[in-house]
Write a protein that binds this DNA or RNA. Structure first.
Lengths: 143, 143
DNA sequence: TCTACAATCTACAGGAACTATAGGTTCAAG
DNA sequence: CTTGAACCTATAGTTCCTGTAGATTGTAGA
């Protein structure tokens, strides 16, 4: 009794639209699943994990191409190490930058909420919150 | 000595395309700047900060609508506190979630790089790295 | 088993957020 | 005062979905 399910339940579980799943399949981000005799797609837990990864990564601002790269690490775990290393290091640098920017934004939002509790905010430094040029090595902006 | 500059230099400084800037102006994310006698746009440092904020936030996965909300905090610092508070708190929750997911991804990338140094990666848990169901409103995890 | 109805199918149109191109105007270095 | 880069508006194309149409399938109740 292997657990398999249709596209609707997959969509619900990964918080994606049914159309989006078919689109990902079309562009090769998701493998073509088995079909029922009536031609309907059937999925398993591995498909769910993969889709959730894609959706989370998209939510974090990664392009589908960047995600394709990350997934390639999962798809070919035995490929030469230097290739994996290069991809992982490149992504790691970007991820670290994103974390720092988000933490700056988080701090500023918290500051505003604190000030708010005291009556009203007189100044807002939210625009400055993301402007950390120490990190901003030109050319590393994600799409 | 007010420093002002054209759209090209603004684009370069904020790592955006010239067209994108005009697009943001069109949809009201950037204010309409002054024009030269020959109808060309002139910008100042405040415009640059605002555009950099937008670009960074986009890179972090915020929608233009979410960014519009965040900018509204900057545009109306004297508006009623409960409105500010609501927006800030809602955004803060999302930001925290993003940070945690990115940290999970960061940890997994670091793990892969470490393993790589030892020869080759035999298993890849990168797909699992973003699947923190503690945060996910939908609790659906096949173990 | 039959039937009703939700879920799924393919195909295509539409929207968000850019991005590129065309054809013309302005700015500034020489 | 020329000339080429930068700018202008307008429009069409790209990416990444999202919605709709019309037909088919899966399934639960009579």
């Amino acid at each position: 009794m292997q657990e398999s399910f249709g596209i609707g339940r997959l969509a619900e579980a990964a918080e994606a639209k049914v159309q989006t799943i078919r689109y990902y399949e079309q562009i090769g981000l998701l493998p073509r699943p088995d079909r029922t005799s009536g031609n309907q797609r059937r999925y398993g837990p591995a498909d769910l994990s993969r889709l959730q990864f894609i959706r989370h990564a998209r939510g974090l601002g990664f392009s589908l191409e960047a995600i394709r790269e990350l997934l390639s690490l999962a798809d070919q775990p035995d490929r030469p190490c230097d290739a994996v290393d290069a991809i992982a290091r490149a992504q790691l640098a970007q991820v670290g930058q994103r974390i720092r920017r988000l933490q700056a934004l988080e701090a500023e939002l918290q500051r505003m909420i604190r000030q708010c509790a005291g009556g009203r905010i007189s100044d807002c430094r939210i625009i400055g919150a993301l402007g950390d040029h120490a990190d901003c090595s030109h050319g590393s902006a994600p799409e």
